[in-house]
Amino acid sequence: MSGPVRRVVLATHNPHKVEEFQGIVAATRPDLEVVGYDGPEPVEDGVTFAQNALIKARAAAAHTGLPALADDSGICVDVLGGAPGVFSAYWAGHAKDAAANLALLLDQLSDVADPHRTAQFRSTIALVVPGGAEHVVEGVWPGRLATAPAGGGGFGYDPIFVPDGQDGAERTAAELSPAEKNAESHRARAFVALAPLLATL
């Protein structure tokens, strides 16, 4: 290896997000080690992805003394005016029940025809360096919502999200391999914008 590995904490207690970020980062920045966060969870009382990402990154940087990344993301459905959006994780209530969230969203769209089921996964990543700079970047993954879940991979709303631009038979994000998802996802797209900022660490 050409140089020392630099640790960056990912401000989440969600092991799926940690694993996904590790995959994305490893492909382009093997000199960075993404580690999970085990400190107290701050209250995410922002009303935008950017506000919540900064709240989480600031808390993790302060708690660990490491540069901190935080992702706030969700699914934004056009016919619902961009909802669930920032409330994606709590769409069916504060239990953060992924299956209930997905079922509720499908039920709300049950009478919506395919041409009107367009949606985007949005990821906003904040980078906070202790005592230093703060940066926010965004990635958008356009697609539409299927009428029923398919696939056993991914998490959250992945089983009903059909990304745009697929060749051949269309698959949901949950039917993509981890490598395919990590190359195209909203988090991967946000990371492309983040990479030059990480180079300054």
Rank of each mutant, 00 (worst) to 15 (best):
1 M>E: 14
4 P>W: 01
5 V>E: 09
5 V>S: 07
6 R>G: 06
8 V>M: 04
10 L>D: 00
15 P>T: 03
15 P>S: 04
18 V>E: 03
19 E>Y: 06
19 E>C: 11
21 F>M: 15
21 F>S: 13
21 F>D: 11
21 F>H: 12
22 Q>P: 09
29 R>V: 12
30 P>F: 05
31 D>S: 00
33 E>N: 07
35 V>C: 04
37 Y>M: 07
40 P>K: 12
40 P>M: 12
41 E>W: 10
41 E>V: 12
43 V>A: 15
47 V>I: 15
48 T>N: 06
51 Q>F: 00
52 N>P: 05
59 A>V: 06
61 A>N: 01
61 A>P: 01
62 A>W: 13
63 H>S: 15
65 G>K: 05
67 P>W: 03
67 P>M: 02
67 P>F: 00
69 L>C: 09
71 D>L: 12
72 D>L: 05
74 G>N: 02
75 I>R: 09
79 V>I: 14
82 G>V: 10
89 A>R: 09
89 A>L: 08
91 W>Q: 02
98 A>S: 14
101 N>P: 03
102 L>W: 09
103 A>F: 03
103 A>Q: 09
103 A>M: 02
106 L>Q: 04
115 P>A: 05
118 T>Y: 10
118 T>K: 13
120 Q>N: 15
122 R>A: 11
122 R>L: 13
123 S>D: 06
126 A>D: 02
126 A>N: 02
128 V>S: 00
130 P>G: 11
131 G>T: 07
134 E>V: 08
134 E>A: 07
137 V>L: 05
140 V>W: 11
146 A>L: 12
149 P>H: 12
151 G>R: 08
154 G>E: 04
158 D>T: 06
161 F>A: 09
161 F>D: 09
161 F>N: 06
164 D>F: 03
165 G>M: 02
166 Q>I: 04
168 G>E: 01
168 G>T: 01
169 A>Q: 13
169 A>D: 14
175 E>P: 12
177 S>K: 10
179 A>C: 05
180 E>S: 02
180 E>L: 06
180 E>C: 07
182 N>E: 07
184 E>T: 13
184 E>I: 14
187 R>A: 08
191 F>H: 14
193 A>I: 11
193 A>Y: 13
195 A>Y: 10
197 L>H: 13
199 A>H: 10
201 L>T: 04
201 L>W: 03
